[in-house]
Design a binder for these strands. Structure first.
Length: 446
RNA sequence: GGCGGUAUAGCCAAGUGGUAAGGCGACGGUCUGCAAAACCGUUAUUCUCCAGUUCAAAUCUGGAUGCCGCCUCCA
């Protein structure tokens, strides 16, 4: 049984599928593609990845959707720089897909985009209008929050407090300051689509309702995203969807914590972002993954180069232990505990702790080392680490072994000037030699 | 001000009633031509603070304080 912390109930719940069977439908809130992805996006992505990997490991059949919101105010704002929003969106999507591959994230089944679902969005708005949950005003269409009595159930907010909060924007077109826009009329030179409500574009939130219902059904199992989306984004998705369908929207709401920089949330608007591109040019994807998984997904993480370097050291320790004979395990001592940890709300830090317990047993020259190595490989695979064994069989391996052979001859002749030169030069090329009792070993540096 | 979360060693981080996992770092030792890796040992009598429940609390209850997120676009 998998336990998942659900934001809707603020509690851990046993996971059960809507269907009662083994098929899981999951929606992950992706990017608004106004900018290139940063480490915070990577965290949300890795969270969605781990959720799916654990479900799959537990025998579930997961159908997952990752969306791109490719039209919004920020994107239009950026058009002032002379670039069409479609080009900009495509570039950021391409970049995202590239880093997703590099990070070894499982493919999602569908990657829908808002602009490809205008028809579905219009139909959804139309049904809300017909049922009285929405109204037209000056070419815009708004959701009538007062009509949905459950409004605030996800974020724990109540409408009275929200109105009293001084941050709600004043907009004369709205009946209430809490109402949010479903369809936004197009101003001069803005991109637009035709609709029964006039020329315009979808508001933020409605695309996710339309696309999740289309691909996953009116009620689905899991909805994931960053915790900063709880309000208003996910709250509004619930309002739109449940008012339209009359059914519960998502059963489990999974929200990941923020990546902070100097104690403050990393965000596009503050401008304190570390891009995925820059991080992955400096650290191996497995190291980045370890850095992210070393903290439970719901906690905030402090971003710093030191944290990444620390993950790199820990990662090397893990890899070093894998050097050696492997044999498929007939016992699963660590693996069982590891699995228990993951079933408990995806407790990756604890699961990783068990991997290091296994590493330590190998390093103490346990007779079971070959089996434990296989067990570790299995665990790393479930956590989505790329298997680096393949690297060792690469084209360069034979040349490296030749140089090692020459170095051994030099060492036998006590020609340490030459032997150290070979070792140093290989090190410059990120190939590390180490002399051990079992002979000389080599590995590549991350 | 409201809602939610969180507070554990030098740093990071698990642990939700039975006596503090794991990682990084540091120090001492072993091994080595020298390194690297690895091993052995040391590094929280104690979990923000106060009060309470209990045979037993980091874990439960009440209160205080700090930090973070949301209440405005955000993963």
């Amino acid at each position: 049984m998998i336990r998942i912390y659900d934001t809707l109930t603020n509690s851990n719940k046993d996971f059960q599928t809507v269907s009662g069977g083994k098929d899981v439908k999951m929606y992950s809130c992706g990017l608004t593609v106004q900018d290139s992805p940063h480490i915070g996006h990577m965290r949300a992505l890795i969270t969605a990845d781990i959720v799916r990997r654990v479900l799959i490991k537990e025998g579930y059949d997961v159908f997952s959707v990752y969306n791109f919101t490719d039209i919004d105010d920020k994107l239009i704002e950026k058009m002032k720089n002379g670039e069409d929003y479609r080009i900009l969106a495509q570039r950021n999507i391409d970049e995202f897909m590239k880093y997703m591959k590099i990070m070894n994230v499982l493919d999602f089944n569908v990657y829908p985009r808002a602009t490809n679902h205008i028809q579905e969005i219009i139909e959804l708005i139309d049904s809300l209008l017909k049922k009285g949950f929405a109204y037209e005003s000056e070419g815009d269409v708004y959701f009538r929050v007062s009509k949905f009595k459950d409004y605030g159930k996800l974020s724990g907010k109540n409408t009275k407090d929200l109105i009293e909060g001084k941050r709600v924007e004043i907009n004369e077109n709205k009946e209430s300051p809490l109402d949010f826009v479903l369809w936004k009329s197009a101003k001069d030179k803005e991109p637009y689509w035709h609709s029964p409500f006039g020329k315009g574009r979808p508001g933020w939130h409605i695309e996710c309702s339309a696309m999740s219902i289309k691909y996953l059904g009116e009620t689905f199992d899991i909805h994931t995203g960053g915790e900063d989306l709880i309000f208003p984004h996910h709250e509004n998705e619930i309002a739109q969807s449940e008012c339209s369908t009359g059914k519960q929207f998502a059963k489990f709401w999974v929200h990941n914590g923020m990546v902070n920089l100097k104690g403050e949330k990393m965000s596009k608007s503050i401008g304190n972002v570390f891009k995925a591109k820059d991080i992955l040019s400096k650290w191996h994807p497995n190291v980045v993954r370890l850095y992210l998984l070393k903290t439970q997904y719901r906690k905030s993480i402090e971003f710093s180069e030191e944290r990444l370097d620390e993950a790199q050291s820990a990662h090397s320790r893990m890899r070093n232990a894998l050097n050696g004979e492997k044999k498929n395990a007939d016992k699963d001592f660590y693996f069982e505990k590891f699995s228990d940890a993951l079933r408990d709300d995806f407790n990756t830090p604890q699961a990783i702790g068990y991997i290091f317990d296994a590493v330590n047993e190998i390093n103490q020259n346990s007779p079971d080392s070959p089996q434990i190595r296989s067990e570790i490989l299995k665990m790393l695979d479930i956590l989505g680490f790329k298997n680096e064994e393949a690297t060792k069989q690469s084209h360069d391996a034979e040349l490296i072994e030749l140089l090692m052979d020459v170095r051994e001859d030099a060492r036998k002749d006590k020609n340490y000037r030459l032997s150290d030169k070979i070792r140093d030069r290989l090190k410059d090329m990120k190939v590390i030699l180490s002399d051990s009792k079992e002979g000389v070993k080599w590995k590549t540096e991350d």
